[in-house]
Design a protein around this nucleic acid. Sequence first.
DNA 1: CATTTCACTGACTCCAAACTCATTGACTTT
DNA 2: AAAGTCAATGAGTTTGGAGTCAGTGAAATG
Lengths: 192, 192
Amino acid sequence: MKTKRQIQKEATRKLILDTAYQVYASEGFSATTNQIARAANLSHGTIFVHFPTVENLIICLLERFGLEINAQFHLLAEKDESLETFLAAHISVLIRYEDFYKRLISEINVLPQEAKYVFINIQSVVSFHLNQVIERDQEKETIKEIPMHIVFNSWLGLIHYYLTNSYLFAAGSVLTDHKDELILNYIKLIRK
Amino acid sequence: MKTKRQIQKEATRKLILDTAYQVYASEGFSATTNQIARAANLSHGTIFVHFPTVENLIICLLERFGLEINAQFHLLAEKDESLETFLAAHISVLIRYEDFYKRLISEINVLPQEAKYVFINIQSVVSFHLNQVIERDQEKETIKEIPMHIVFNSWLGLIHYYLTNSYLFAAGSVLTDHKDELILNYIKLIRK
DNA sequence: CATTTCACTGACTCCAAACTCATTGACTTT
DNA sequence: AAAGTCAATGAGTTTGGAGTCAGTGAAATG
């Protein structure tokens, strides 16, 4: 049985992580602990009651994010789905996390090392599912003889290119605006 | 006729820009004016004699970089070359500027607005040449019916993906290590 | 009910970065 | 060659962030 205090503490910790997620998504990871505290209606010191350093806060946030987004990928990756369905599912998950994911991929190189592990993790899960879809015989026949990692990297490359350069392509959500075009043309590229 | 002072001043300005280029290439744009001054063997204040703010220094540096790299693209884009030759030329230019270019594309979203203009400029020039190569009849016949912007964005997407995730692919220069593979497979993708 | 614990507060310290400016002495001008 | 200019200096100032800590009052404990 949890005491009131434990419940309160966990709620505050969650509030900090949720708020940090929002603030980082809209301001980027250069947002300050002050901004997060203000947005969460907490005093500045409270953040350091729950996380020893900002870096630790970011790492905890990223780990939670990695678990959550990967769970979504698993959930949406049905057995025996078509390539098109899979790509659509992938994009639909990314849309849900678009702003934060965009910050993650575009600031990955200035984030702590652990961010890279989280990122590799996310990519591995997507890669695994894409592999499964493509390895299946009925699909395999229709796809060019190209190394799987190139198939995968060109898909992610295309998606990430649109995300990091979204200011070139759309005012709101690039993925929402371009998903059909991207899926259609990517499939044209990798099919014989 | 330039006076000694003018010559000296221009030399110092160039030294600051050259050093900033080196420092930013190896440390990223979060490197400080202190680091640049030390690396250039100048006192800290000297930087502000030549540039009113760091932001202004970065903008000047990026503008110079844009002009320089675009000149290289023009120089290397011969008439009537094959698609393969063009892509190889593109990569060979990028290799020359790899570290800095990598920082530019991976930190573009935290740099001042002007950085985006420079970046759009660089991409336009590459896009223009790629268009020319592909539009030519002998090539056109062999390429799939895919919108030109997708052809272009998948190439840049692939290259940028390898650059921003270079820690996954190589210790030294990703482009040097993977250029042949990238060119070969990209051509396979867009050909019928 | 008295005592102890502890989540939270907010004013504080510390630090590192950008930017300033009086001073210097070599160069330029007259 | 005297007077004036100005590139460069480096010890400041200012700003804004991360992280600290004594204090407070509600909750837990005995």
